[in-house]
Design a protein around this nucleic acid. Structure first.
Length: 1060
RNA sequence: GCCCGGGUGGUGAAAUCGGUAUACACGAGGGACUUAAAAUCCCUUGGUCGCAAGACCGUGCGGGUUCAAGUCCCGCCCCGGGUACCA
């Protein structure tokens, strides 16, 4: 009988559904195992072949663990709230609930076809009121909690209120208790607290709550009309949609994740995650140790003696404090207004306004551009009493540290660039150690040799020293100018273009003595530094902090890069924040009134008055009179605790019952994309720790082991299109010309001005342009071509079908894109050669391959095996079906082994194959190496086919072992062997060790490290015996040529090496 | 720039502890069966030289450690990912 995968797969998918094969109960005698996939956002595009990669891997592990005797929780659900459905709703009026529902249906169908062993009775959807009731509940818990820094855990705010009632709040002194969080609460006494109005109390407490409403700098995305969290912004644009993002200060619901920074950082060490994942989180949290330091500043007009204002800076390099030659404030710094002198006011005001209006993207685009303004004020150096100019510059970020830095240009590259640009003095205070210059001596013992003392004299001559002999000079700008001179200018935003001109290295004169870079390394000895002189950097840091603290100038502290997370979204399709306002005070909704159900609205846009969409909801008021909060929760809210809900998905009284969570604890294996490193994975750790603090769950981490599957990329083909514009000079209006399509290689030449063919390629375009402009002139209009307006578009992708051997079928292309019919094509050898790129699969790139296609052609089992066979799970790779016939052929050969299963006793050769396969597969599943498992199955089937083996004793265990990988064919063959129970209820076959060991081993014999022949020896034999036996062979004698070996190395079961 | 991965045949990739480099598959070439095709099966397949036996070379590049290096150490080059004025 033929292997009819269509029939088999349908049959078993039906059977599993009817028999509830994958339903799992909480509890029981078996050990538990929780295998979880990151649940998907159900997008309109459906699943592509990349999505199931991780699901297949986790399914294999889940099925294997079941066979190995575990009670396995392996659920699936949907991250169903989110932006795309809402964007779609705004465009089409289609309710997001409806599109989400449709998409989920499609996802489910696609997943069912692949034969996953999910327990669908535990499905969760974050948009389901029965689910988000508990998301809201957790929010209320966070709102009702503060972080007790002394006990290092969250507590109900009532305990903080008790403190206030007893002791009041003594500011600095109470920081031991409340932590170093940036709240500006003025100290008050217990008496004052008791007399505060309700509003005042609420305002104070808001500074301590873990979910709080406060003024904050946010990432505002005008196009999406909402605030975004830091991890939702990539390269200054929104992660979803790629819209520009601005900085804006506004009242905002936030999560005080910073209170958990230390725990989030420290607990990483114990996790079984990849180092790169942990590093990403460490970097994101960005702990840095340093000290605060105050610089006194007089008000404008006042003398230095009356300096009563203070600028507090944060630095990690207090050892360089004697090198401070200026102080820089962030443009948003509140002190700027107070200290700026009358003469400088205009300039500073202009600068501050400019800096504030720059979008996040603009700022990031010209990071290298130095900007700033002098305030006219001078601070007093705390140790030398020198006058230090105070500047403002947007390289200093308002949101980090104190929003002010001390400028040490000699030892900080950013300060250096600033000083260079504005001609500020540079004072060297760390001696450049020879180790820093001599690259070879950087490893090993870092003994400072005496050579450095020679340089001491010259180095300490106080002016501008050249620290290192630096050859890089900026003469390349000449080159650049000529290239960008009027004619051949292209203000192209294309990435190919940008690097060409910058690569020319100058032949600069080494005569230049001027310092061209700062010495940033934390290595060397202090010089010109008063009490720090002669100390090593490390010691100097400690000494400086001690001195700063002693003189009351500041104190050692730890700063984090991590920001509190923006929690409110000015959007509709999310969980309503369960808060209402009464007398201007936000009140939590009583728990027993949850869920606060998302109201229906007629349109999904913001209201005419600019309020979020919820402003459209009728009677959106608590008890009919108190306004509800209008923002909703961000996408990450629902996904920050979903793993707990799977344990007890239908519980109406609790987010998860104690019994359920005590049984399942946390996730044993979590599989998902590495892109969630600084978003989801940080937030889910944060909420887990918080819930642990409240005593509701017994674990501090959501997932002990995390594996990131690689991305399966698509191969897209594309054409290059130039959009040309003409400017009508009298009216200054722009007219778009028909586009020009440039064959790929020519395009690349055009992008590289140094290419020898450049002028030829360019003139071809010019010809086309002239034709067009002549035509327009004939029409009697006055036009001119503005060449600088030429824009190289990002690749425009076309379906692969139009392309054969990289040659575009222009006729078909015209049909697909009618507007191309009047376009010009610049060809090479009469053909248009397309570009190709391997990139993320996306609908818009026409490079998506769906799993359904593969299931239709080869079946789900082939898809599953093939995705695993493609290579290591973690690796990203382009999808190609080149090898799929190999895997499919394997299943057919496997099927054929079962034609006539016999009951004879298996022989040693057969048992050896079986047991080795079982061992290899077991080991490889446990180390997540699925590609080698598939190889091993292939080897086994090839060998058994050669042996014409059709014995049940061999085939039965083999079916069980294969069933996690190819469950459909396994079920069918299992049934064919006469079993009525599902193969999923079988036990993973025991491995008989005796077939894993050989009696003999074929030793490769090396002579001087080169393999010359092999020698078979019993494994019982001692190395000495083997040595003498090998030496007495003819082969050995031949290679020894009569000489006596100097040494013979015998490594049992590995190798023999004869050294002559 | 910094941090983390990675570089092995024509291709996807194996080599888990320093021990026969290229398992398994694809592709390619040759062959069997067939009127033919599909399907299936068999053989060859890292490079150079050689009629052959065989020899030499070979895991991005250059050094080193070792009896022995894809694997360890030092210095480079290239590719991918993360992050970016974080003081």
């Amino acid at each position: 009988m033929e292997y009819d995968f269509h029939y088999i797969e349908q049959k078993w998918q039906q059977a599993w559904k009817e028999r509830h094969t994958y339903k799992v109960e909480n509890g029981g005698p078996k050990p538990k195992c929780y295998v979880l996939d990151m649940f998907p956002y159900p997008s309109g595009a459906g699943l592509h072949v990349g999505h199931p990669l991780g699901y297949i891997a986790s399914d294999i592990v889940a099925r294997y663990k079941r066979l190995a005797g575990y009670n396995v929780l392996h659920p699936m659900g949907y991250d169903a709230f989110g932006l795309p459905a809402e964007q779609y709703a705004i465009q089409t009026g289609q309710h997001p609930a409806k599109t989400t529902e449709d998409n989920i249906k499609r996802y489910r169908e696609q997943m069912d076809r692949i034969g996953f062993s999910f327990d669908w009775s535990r499905e969760v959807r974050t948009s389901d009121p029965g689910y988000y009731k508990w998301t809201q509940w957790i929010f209320l818990k966070l709102f009702g909690s503060w972080y007790n820094n002394e006990k290092n855990k969250a507590e109900p705010v009532e305990t903080l209120i008790a403190v206030f009632e007893k002791e009041g709040f003594r500011g600095e002194e109470h920081r031991v208790l409340t932590g170093d969080i940036e709240h500006d609460v003025q100290p008050f006494t217990a008496e004052q607290w008791k007399n505060f109005t309700e509003k005042e109390k609420s305002d104070v407490l808001m500074n301590f709550r873990l979910a709080y409403l406060g003024e904050a700098w946010v990432n505002w995305c005008p196009a999406l009309g909402t605030v975004l969290a830091n991890d939702e912004v990539k390269d200054g644009v929104s992660e979803r949609g790629g819209y520009p993002v601005e900085r804006k200060r506004m009242p905002q619901w936030s999560m005080r994740i910073t209170s958990y920074a230390d725990r989030l950082l420290n607990d990483l060490d114990a996790l079984d995650w990849t180092e790169s994942m942990k590093e990403a989180q460490r970097n994101w949290i960005g702990r840095s140790e340093g000290t605060s330091l105050k610089f006194r500043v007089p008000r404008p007009g006042a003398g230095q003696e009356q300096a009563d204002l203070e600028i507090e800076v944060f630095t990690t390099r207090p050892d360089t404090v004697f090198g401070v030659t200026f102080v820089t404030l962030a443009p948003e710094h509140e002190l700027i207004a107070q200290i700026t002198t009358a003469e400088q006011k205009k300039e500073v005001d202009e600068y501050v306004t400019m800096a504030k209006n720059r979008s996040e993207r603009e700022r990031q685009a010209d990071v290298k551009k130095v900007t700033g303004a002098f305030t006219g004020a001078y601070a007093i150096h705390p140790f030398t009493n020198e006058k230090i100019p105070v500047w403002t510059g947007d390289y200093v970020l308002a949101g980090y540290g104190t929003g002010a830095v001390m400028g040490v240009p000699a030892h900080d590259s950013r300060d250096f660039a600033f000083a260079k640009h504005f001609g500020l003095p540079i004072k060297q205070v760390i001696e450049v150690s020879t180790a820093g210059l001599n690259k070879h001596s950087s490893a090993g013992s870092n003994e400072h040799n005496s050579a450095s003392s020679n340089e001491h004299n010259s180095a300490s001559s106080n002016e501008h020293n050249s620290a290192s002999s630096n050859e890089h000079n900026s003469a390349s700008s000449n080159e650049h100018n000529s290239a960008s001179s009027n004619e051949h200018t292209s203000d192209s935003s294309d990435k190919h273009n940008s690097d060409s001109s910058d690569k020319h290295l100058s032949v600069s004169s080494s005569a230049s003595r001027e310092q061209t870079e700062s010495y940033d390394a934390k290595e060397g000895k202090c010089i010109n530094s008063g009490f720090l002189n002669g100390l090593d950097v490390k010691d100097a840091v400690k000494r400086a902090i001690a001195e700063i603290e002693k003189r009351g100038l500041g104190k050692g502290k730890v700063n984090y890069r991590l920001r509190d997370a923006a929690f409110g979204r000015q959007r509709y399709w999310g969980e309503p924040i369960p808060v209402y306002y009464k007398d201007g005070i936000p009140h939590p909704l009583p728990e027993n009134e949850l869920p606060l159900v998302l109201p229906e609205i007629d349109k999904f846009q913001p209201t005419e008055t600019g309020e979020p969409p919820l402003g459209r909801a009728k009677d959106w008021k608590y008890k009919g009179q108190y306004e509800y909060e209008l923002t909703t929760m961000p996408g990450w809210a629902g996904s920050s605790w979903y793993y707990l809900r799977y344990m007890d998905p239908h519980n109406a009284d609790e987010f998860v019952s104690k019994e359920a969570v005590d049984y399942w604890k946390n996730v044993d294996l979590y599989i998902g994309g590495a892109e969630h490193a600084t978003g989801h994975l940080l937030y889910v750790r944060f909420w887990t720790k918080f819930l642990f603090d409240t005593g509701k769950i017994p674990v501090q981490e959501p997932a002990q082991k995390l594996v990131n599957q690689g991305m399966i990329q698509g191969v897209s083909a594309f054409v290059y299109r130039l959009n040309l514009r003409i400017i009508d000079q009298p009216t200054d209006t722009q007219i778009n010309l028909p586009p020009v399509f440039v064959s790929c290689n020519k395009y690349k030449i055009l992008c590289d001005r140094t290419h020898p063919e450049y002028s030829n390629a360019y003139s071809e375009i010019e010809t086309v342009l002239n034709q067009i402009s002549n035509e327009l002139q004939r029409q009697g209009k006055l036009w001119s071509l503005d060449l600088s307006e030429r824009i190289f578009l990002p690749p425009l992708n076309v379906p692969i079908d139009f392309v054969e051997n990289d040659i575009l079928n222009i006729q078909l292309f015209h049909k697909w894109r009618p507007e191309s019919q009047n376009a010009k094509f610049i060809l090479e050898n009469g053909e248009y050669i397309c570009g190709r790129e391997v990139e993320k699969m996306s609908k818009s790139k026409y490079n998506v391959v769906t799993p359904d296609d593969i299931c239709n052609d080869y079946g789900a089992d082939t898809l599953r095996l093939y995705e695993m066979f493609l290579g290591p799970l973690e690796q990203s790779k382009p999808w190609n079906t080149n090898g799929i016939t190999g895997v499919h052929g394997f299943l057919k050969r496997f099927w054929r082994l079962f034609e006539n299963p016999g009951t004879e006793k298996a022989n040693d050769a057969e048992l050896k194959i079986l047991n080795r396969t079982l061992k290899k597969v077991k080991d490889d599943i446990e180390r997540m190496s699925f590609n080698t498992c598939v190889s091993q199955f292939m080897i086994a089937v090839n060998e058994l086919t050669d042996l014409k083996c059709s014995k049940r004793a061999i085939l039965e265990p083999l079916v069980i072992a294969l069933s996690p990988f190819a469950p459909h064919i396994a079920e069918e063959l299992w049934e064919k062997l006469g079993h009525s129970e599902s193969v999923t209820k079988a036990e993973f076959p025991a491995i008989d060790e005796k077939y894993l060991v050989d009696d003999t081993f074929d030793y490769p014999v090396q002579v001087n490290g080169k393999v010359r022949f092999t020698f078979t020896a019993s494994l019982q034999k001692q190395p000495k015996e083997i040595e003498s036996e090998v030496l007495s062979t003819d082969e050995a004698k031949k290679w020894l040529e009569g000489k006596t070996p100097k040494k013979v190395i015998v490594v049992p079961k590995r190798i023999v090496n004869i050294v002559v």
